[in-house]
Amino acid sequence: MDPAIVCKGLTKRYGAVVALDSLDLQVRPKAIFGFLGPNGAGKTTTMKILAGLIAPTAGVAYVAGCLASPHNPASRRRVGYLPEEPSFYGWMNAREYLLFVAGLLGQTGREAATRADELLELVDLSQAAGRRIGGFSRGMRQRLGIAQALMGRPEVLLLDEPSSALDPLGRRDVLSLIERLAGETTVFMSTHILADVERVCQEVAIVAHGRLVAQANQEELRLRYAAPVFEVETAGEVPALLDRLRREPWVARIAQEGSVLRLTARDARRARQELPQLLAALGEQLVRYQQARPTLEDVFVRLVEA
């Protein structure tokens, strides 16, 4: 099966600023794909190129086999796009907006009305279908944004930071919606919220400074890139242990959350040998010690900082 998205040497410069630097990427069809990166990594620029809103300075991008370009409407017929902050005509109601989008896609009459009602149902906006969009909450706008992106039954759905501006309930709704799209269409979702990616994405690409740093499924990424992580839980503060650990050359990073220390090792063998000896000195203050399963955050931080 041909890839749903292909980027070859995709480069975008704004004067002296390089937003994208020779990005190579392939996304298999029907995957829910997480496009991860810190702010300013080039995620939105990639999204806009794939959506046909801007042209690359160099390189090419194909979406569902079509060249993505502002001058190629055929590619935009196969793509549904949700920008980071979707904007609508506040004077329209939700159903009117979907029918307007249907018109842009060449759908008319009953076909358009049926599809609009289906999507309003899918995104849980049937009750608000006749309300002016100007009065919608952020979460409702985001869900309407997903509905309009799905109007043309796109082969590829591009979601730019779909949950980053939402409250926990809005985030939960949007992620559930994305999960429900699994197997129906290719979802290419950019975000910097790692928990969202862990929850819904099968495959992940990490970008930093406009370049692809890694691409694999989540488990592979952990195996390949995660440094060994140890968790130590203590009863109360242990400043002496913390000071000692910070001086150890085999310790790469220490994160403290309450009474739990999360320690990323630079040298796993030495960590396994020396950490228990250091912890033995804590005596009854030690509550728990274990080698933890690395998270996507551990992988992300290691790759992006590198």
């Binding site: 959506a51 046909g52 809103l53 502002p70 409407p73 055929a74 935009r76 017929r77 793509v79 796009y81 920008p83 979707p86 904007s87 609508f88 989008v101 842009l104 896609l105 060449g106 309009q148 043309g152």
Partner: peptide
């Protein structure tokens, strides 16, 4: 931008 992301 939302309109121009459609085939128009």
């Amino acid at each position: 931008a939302m309109v121009l992301a459609k085939p128009v």
